[in-house]
Simulated assay, not measured.
Amino acid sequence: MPEDELLATHLQELRRGTVVLACLLILQQPNYGYALLDLLEKYGFTVDANTLYPLLRRLEKQGLLTSDWNTDESRPRKFYRTSADGTALAQTLSHDWDELDAAFRSLKGES
């Protein structure tokens, strides 16, 4: 496997779970898919729409997100929001992330 392909594979594995947490955190304020793509990009999470929309449906099916259609504008949009269960999971994952970050910093000799 070429080196750049190997790097891309490992980066994808590393980032996969972070997108879930990022979505749960961002969607504590209701938003729709396309705007969420922009916000994720703004915060440094590069996600393809073909990845995001199935993820949103999966999180909704798991009860971690809720959704409502907004038909007030000319183009209906499905707005997602983190549910109470999603908020609880985001808090747990964030705590675990902080512990992992501290462990990696320790491994690298940082305080």
Results as ranks from 00 to 15, higher is better:
L52Y: 00
L56T: 02
D85Y: 05
Q28A: 05
R16N: 12
L55I: 07
Y43S: 04
F45Y: 15
T82N: 13
P30S: 07
L100G: 03
Q29C: 04
E13P: 03
N31P: 00
D96R: 10
A22G: 08
S111Y: 04
L59N: 07
E41H: 14
K61G: 15
T46A: 09
R81E: 14
Y34M: 07
G17D: 13
S106M: 05
S94C: 05
E60A: 12
R75G: 00
T9P: 01
Q29M: 05
S74H: 05
L14H: 11
V47L: 03
L27Q: 00
R75C: 04
L6R: 15
L21Y: 09
F104L: 15
R81Y: 02
F104R: 05
G44N: 04
L7T: 08
E5R: 13
K108C: 09
A102M: 05
R58F: 10
R105M: 10
R105V: 03
K61V: 09
T46N: 11
Q62W: 11
L27I: 05
Y53M: 02
S74W: 07
R105I: 02
L24P: 03
L93W: 14
S67T: 14
N31D: 15
L7R: 14
S106V: 01
R15M: 13
A103W: 07
G86I: 03
G44W: 01
C23A: 14
P2T: 07
F104W: 10
Q12R: 15
D72A: 13
S67M: 12
T92V: 09
R105G: 11
A35T: 07
V20I: 14
T92E: 14
S83A: 10
A102G: 04
G63D: 10
Y43Q: 05
N70R: 11
V47Y: 00
L40A: 00
Q28R: 15
Q29S: 13
